[in-house]
């Protein structure tokens, strides 16, 4: 297995984007068409409503726990860290001790933030006890 000799390495990605962009919607369209021909289409309210345990449901509020937002915030912090670390990891041997020391400093700064988030209870799922 060797590296490919080609001027346009991203052509394969383009082909797959195009293929999946055509094939999957076409499959779903076909399934929708077949389903409409064969299934019993009635518009009874209980059938058309969302899944509940029997009664006709009312519209439900779109509200989720604040905990999920905290995790999203933490994610932004640490994923940006990782994006900075990828180029450093590739050139790790070229950068030598200097690059390594700088990355250690960066990790230490982030660890301080991480410890702060931990102590503040951002990593606990609230009110379990």
């Amino acid at each position: 297995m060797t590296h490919a000799l080609t001027d346009h390495p991203y052509f394969g990605v383009f082909v797959l984007v195009a293929l999946t962009g055509i094939a999957f919607p076409a499959t779903l369209f076909l399934a929708r068409w077949v389903g409409r021909k064969l299934s019993r289409l009635d518009t009874e309210r209980l059938k058309m409503s969302i899944y509940e345990c029997g009664p006709l449901p009312t519209r439900q509020p779109n509200a989720i726990s604040i905990q999920f937002y905290l995790i999203a915030l933490l994610f932004i912090l640490f994923d940006v860290e990782i994006i900075f670390m990828f180029p450093w990891a590739i050139d790790f041997k070229l950068l030598g001790w200097f690059g390594f020391a700088e990355m250690i400093l960066f990790i230490v700064l982030l660890t301080i933030g991480f410890v702060y988030a931990w102590k503040k209870g951002a990593l606990e799922w609230h009110s379990i006890k």
Binding site: T20, F24, P25, L28, L30, A31, R32, V34, G35, R36, L38, S39, R40, L41, M48, S49, I50, Y51, R59
Partner: peptide, 21 residues
């Protein structure tokens, strides 16, 4: 393939349809 392609009443139709793709 032969099941009805069911979209519930209050759903956002377009997003509901493209999410699996």
């Amino acid at each position: 393939f032969t099941k009805e392609d069911f979209i519930p009443q209050n759903a956002n139709k377009l997003i509901f349809m493209i999410a699996p793709i």
